[in-house]
C-alpha cells in the first residue's frame, strides 16, 4: 500500500493520477455512505471499503465522519477480537477488519490535519487525533509513504 499525505490542496490526487490510476479506480471518502453509529459500524465501513476500487482518497474525511470507528480504543478492541477469532480457529473474515480493509487498498491519500491551530471542540480534537494516529499505523505497514508539498512528492519511506 502507498500512503500519500500532505496538506489540503497540495496535489495528492494529481500524484495518484501520475501513478496511472483513473478516476473510476478512486473511491472518495466524501462519497462513502454514512453507516451511522450502529454497533457494527466498523464492520459495515470495512464492507463499504471493499468495493474493488484500488484507491481511497481523503481518508481524513472518513475518520471525521465516523470518529468512533477510528479511535485507539476501537483499534485495541479490534486487535483483541482478531486474536480471539484466531484462537477460536474461525475462518478469517477480511470485511470484519477495518484496518485490514484499508491495508487492502493500493493507494490511500490523507490530509495532514495535525498542523495549524488546535481545534476548538472536543469532537474535532478527537477526530484530528484519530486521523494522525491512523496515518502512523498505516505508514508503519505501507510499502511507500509520500508527502506532497506544493505538488512535489517527497518520499518519506520506501520499503
Amino acid at each position: 500500500m502507498i500512503l500519500v499525505v500532505g496538506g489540503a490542496a497540495a496535489g495528492k490526487r494529481a500524484y495518484v493520477e501520475s501513478l496511472g490510476y483513473t478516476a473510476a479506480q478512486m473511491a472518495d471518502s466524501t462519497d462513502m455512505p454514512r453507516v451511522g453509529d450502529a454497533r457494527d459500524e466498523r464492520r459495515r465501513l470495512a464492507a463499504a471499503l471493499a468495493d474493488g476500487r484500488p484507491v481511497l482518497l481523503n481518508l481524513h474525511e472518513l475518520v471525521f465522519a465516523h470518529p468512533s470507528a477510528f479511535t485507539e480504543t476501537a483499534a485495541a478492541t479490534e486487535s483483541a477480537a482478531v486474536t480471539d477469532s484466531a484462537a477460536a480457529a474461525e475462518p478469517n473474515e477480511p470485511a470484519a477488519d477495518l484496518f485490514a480493509a484499508l491495508l487492502a487498498k493500493e493507494v490511500i491519500t490523507c490530509d495532514e490535519v495535525g498542523s495549524g491551530v488546535i481545534p476548538a471542540t472536543r469532537e474535532e480534537r478527537d477526530a484530528r487525533e484519530a486521523t494522525g494516529r491512523l496515518a502512523c499505523r498505516l505508514a508503519a505497514k505501507a510499502e511507500r509513504v509520500v508527502r506532497i508539498i506544493a505538488g512535489i512528492p517527497v518520499v518519506l519511506k520506501e520499503a
Binding site: A8, A10, E124
Partner: peptide, 22 residues
C-alpha cells in the same frame, strides 16, 4: 502551507470562503 491544518475539512467548521482560500 495553509493546507496543513484541518481547514480543508467541511466538518471542521471553517467557512466555505476559508476552504476556497486554502
Amino acid at each position: 502551507d495553509v493546507g496543513s491544518g484541518f481547514a480543508g475539512i467541511p466538518a471542521a467548521g471553517y467557512s466555505a470562503s476559508t476552504r476556497l482560500y486554502v
